[in-house]
Amino acid sequence: MSTLAMSTLAMSPLATTAFDGMLAVLIAWTAWQSVTSREVFRAVMLFVVFGLLLALAWLRLGAPDVALAEAAVGAGLTGVLFLESLGHLRRNKTVEPPETVAQSRLRRWAVGLPVVVAGGLLAMVALRLEPRVPGIAGLVVRHQGETGVSNPVTAVLLDFRSTDTLLEVVVLLLAVIATYGLVPHGPAHHGPRVRPPATPRPPRQPVLVWFVRRLAPLALLVGVYLWWVGSSAPGGAFQAAAVVAAVFALLRVSGMEAAPPPNARPMRLLMVAGSVAFVSQGLAMLAAGRVFLDLPETVAYGLIVSLEGVLAASLAACLIALVAGAPRPPRQSGERP
């Protein structure tokens, strides 16, 4: 990892600082434009640009793992999620209602002032933090050999702090369940109709379809590669899952439905598989007389790589389900309460 950070182009310190400065200004500007926009579509587009620029900033910070996740998840999938929700909003709800001068002035001061104070306090505290050398990073470096993987970020995620990762997998699963639980159902639901079936079916554009057809298998390959390489280089289950889910999102918006419907049984089983595999690995360690999720040195590598494989598939299924959105309520169904 550090070799990768080192191998960035040798630039003079002045040039690097100038680049970082420009990048920071651009990022702050897109964020500002996005936050002050009253139009949802514009705000979302700016947010996607913001995410891509932020991915560059992560590279500059020597965090390629985060950069990958930011580009694929932060900019890509979150952007698709937002765009998808635009289809659900009624047309007149995608722009904020206008307000009076007095209202906007009040808002500017009543919200702006405390927020500037909060940001200033955060900057002050963060800049004055006394770094504790060697810190925990030293522990990671020292014990990394016991995990069998040479990417320290993967070692932290899947071994040293695997409880966090387990809970993260569970949170994603919960999000899918909660999202589906919120679908208004049946005749009990009344109220203004939202625009009918939200599955975006844009007219088939031959160039887009041609391009996506060729891109999809390559991108899937990239996903598999990211999973495999995660043990020794930037990458891993999450980045792989994000790329795979992005492929399906791309197929979806270009009018080719490739994934089975999220409530099909295989998809549901796949979504649960990640949490189940993770927990059973932990329980297996307990049964072997170790601490929950504490991997023995001899088999750690195999366990991490295989668990990451299951996680990648399972997380991808969850993300696809989130992007695909909940099933539409049956229209005029014959159900009786």
Binding site: M1, S2, A5, L61, G62, A63, D65, V66, A69, E70, V73, G74, L77, T78, L81, G135, I136, A137, V140, P152, V153, A155, V156, L157, R161, D164, T165, E168, V171, L172, A175, G236, F238, L315, L319, L322
Partner: peptide, 18 residues
């Protein structure tokens, strides 16, 4: 190099954000 621990935390954070 960059400290791997906050990197891992942030990776988790990004997925939670989604």
């Amino acid at each position: 190099g960059t400290d791997p621990l906050p990197q891992a935390l942030v990776l988790t954070g990004i997925v939670i954000s989604v």
